[in-house]
């Protein structure tokens, strides 16, 4: 989906804040991901055009950062830390059990991540970048299910608050 007029205006506003337009690349990629649930090829081309870059450069930058997904991954990204403080507090087991639990659920993407700077909550999990911890496997499933049911309101797949126009999980 290409930029709508409103989106283009918003994008141009973002660009205008920076002394140099290319600095708006990451914010625009976030914006595109908020909208589509991942960074689509079309969005990369739109952004390239807006910033006067080639799509190759946009892809080059986009593919460097782990938060940007370039294929659909579902509405909920569950990030489980397994770095050392979580490792010694059960992170690996947590990720294994969640992976198994949601293996067939297209809505939920479970990924093992590096330290998310919340080691006092180890083992820690983020659901669309909202922190939860310490969690047992059961508690984690409970939280994820609450997001699925809407009892908890999830952020976007890029961690932005859900606002009009962005893709509600």
């Amino acid at each position: 989906m290409s930029f709508s007029d409103t989106e283009r205006r918003r994008a141009e506003e973002i660009v205008a804040r920076y002394p140099h337009s290319k600095s708006a690349l990451l914010p625009l990629l976030h914006m595109a991901q908020d909208r589509d649930g991942y960074v689509t090829g079309e969005a990369m081309k739109d952004i390239a055009e807006l910033l006067g870059l080639t799509p190759a450069l946009v892809l080059g930058t986009c593919s460097f950062y782990t938060m940007f997904k370039r294929a659909p991954i579902g509405n909920l990204v569950v990030s489980v830390c397994t770095n050392v403080s979580c490792l010694v507090n059960g992170g690996p087991a947590l990720v294994d059990s969640l992976r198994a639990r949601y293996a067939d659920d297209e809505d939920v993407h479970v990924e093992e991540v590096e330290c998310v700077a919340a080691c006092d909550l180890a083992p820690v999990m983020q659901v669309n970048y909202e922190f939860h911890g310490p969690v047992t496997s059961e508690a984690a499933v409970d939280v994820i299910e609450q997001y699925k049911s809407g009892a908890l309101v999830a952020r976007t797949i890029s961690g932005s608050p859900v606002i009009a126009g962005s893709k509600a999980p």
Partner: peptide, 8 residues
């Protein structure tokens, strides 16, 4: 940091 959603 991108992952700090509430922080942002």
């Amino acid at each position: 940091r991108g992952e700090f959603a509430l922080g942002a």
